[in-house]
């Protein structure tokens, strides 16, 4: 059974399932580093997942869908930014409101546009970036098969996820923007004193997290599932927050942590196929990612240190 479970497809499916979580978690890392908690990512993903499918169906082009998905998510994240940065509202409550709004807005538009609740029509999903020929037999062929499936078989946004993990880690630690971003979340007063515009810096960070959550939603519907189902994000936005903590508030760490969740998800899907061998009800497999999140948080929180000013509104003097 081992050789049937541990295949290149298992790892590839782990990467694919990790991608929406990772995209959101990377955005969450940027956002929280600036001092703003973005608990709205669950809702942002849901809105963009819906907007992506609706636009792709309307225009007959999946890439227009991706664009509209990102746009919708950025717009809703602007509400969160305005409330939590300018009006200094409670960030967790503002985020919760957006999550519930997202359920309402997507459900309402679903019934208004498609005429029924549940699931939308199906769109053609975006194809993998490369379509390479399978290798021949022998050891070399097997190696090529692993390399091809585990690294080269993905759709474009999966690579965007990998790229943004590397790029934003570099930007956070090697650029002036990154230094300023981190200062905003640690000691905004000091940042303000040396002339950094705290409010603008936080706005940019929240909008980046909206952008990333938009890509996450687009990946979910336009690259993976091909249709939208009500509440289909199923807690991925919250898992992304946990992945961000597990990754110690760095984009690279958040990506690696998301891979762990993706792997748990891929494994449970695979193991469900062997239900006649393993006599465990499917619900227990479905619980796995959530249980893993709790265990990971129990193990890591307390040792990982959050940005000092995360969640605290900042008031400019004047």
């Amino acid at each position: 059974m081992f050789s049937e479970v541990v295949t290149p497809e298992l790892f590839a499916s782990a990467v694919r399932l990790a991608t929406p979580i990772a995209l959101a978690a990377i955005g969450g890392a940027v956002c929280e580093r600036s001092g703003v908690v973005n608990i709205a990512m669950e809702g942002l993903m849901l809105i963009s997942a819906f907007a992506g499918v609706a636009a792709a169906l309307l225009f007959g082009n999946a890439w227009i869908g991706v664009f509209v998905a990102v746009l919708a998510s950025v717009l809703f994240s602007a509400i969160h930014a305005w409330a939590s940065i300018n009006l200094r509202a409670d960030q967790v409550i503002s985020g919760t409101a957006i999550n519930i709004l997202a359920l309402g807005v997507t459900g309402f538009l679903m019934e208004t546009i498609f005429g029924h609740p549940g699931t939308t029509d199906t769109v053609k999903t975006i194809k993998p970036l490369m379509d390479l020929p399978a290798g021949g037999g022998g050891v070399l062929g097997t190696i090529w098969q692993w390399v091809d499936v585990v690294f080269l078989s993905y759709t474009p946004l999966v690579y965007v996820g990998m790229f943004s993990a590397v790029f934003l880690t570099w930007a956070m630690y090697r650029t002036r923007w990154g230094l300023r971003l981190r200062a905003l979340g640690e000691h905004p007063r000091a940042a303000d004193t040396v002339g950094i515009n705290v409010l603008r810096g936080r706005w940019v960070a929240v909008l980046i997290s909206g952008f990333m959550a938009g890509l996450a939603g687009a990946n979910l519907t336009l690259e993976q599932v091909g249709s939208f189902t009500e509440n289909m994000t199923n807690g991925r936005g919250f898992i992304a927050l946990a992945a961000n903590i597990f990754g110690r508030w760095t984009p690279g760490g958040a990506y690696m942590a998301s891979l762990l969740f993706g792997f748990a998800d891929a494994l449970q899907l695979k193991l469900q196929l062997f239900s006649d061998v393993i006599k465990i009800p499917p619900q227990f497999f479905l619980m796995l990612p959530y249980i893993l999140t709790v265990i990971v948080l129990a193990g890591v929180v307390g040792r990982a240190v959050a940005p000092a000013s995360v969640g605290k509104p900042y008031k400019e003097k004047g």
Partner: peptide, 15 residues
Amino acid sequence: SIIQGTIIFLVGAET
């Protein structure tokens, strides 16, 4: 749900 979300937003962030 839209009404609910709006209420949470407005009351929760009373500012």
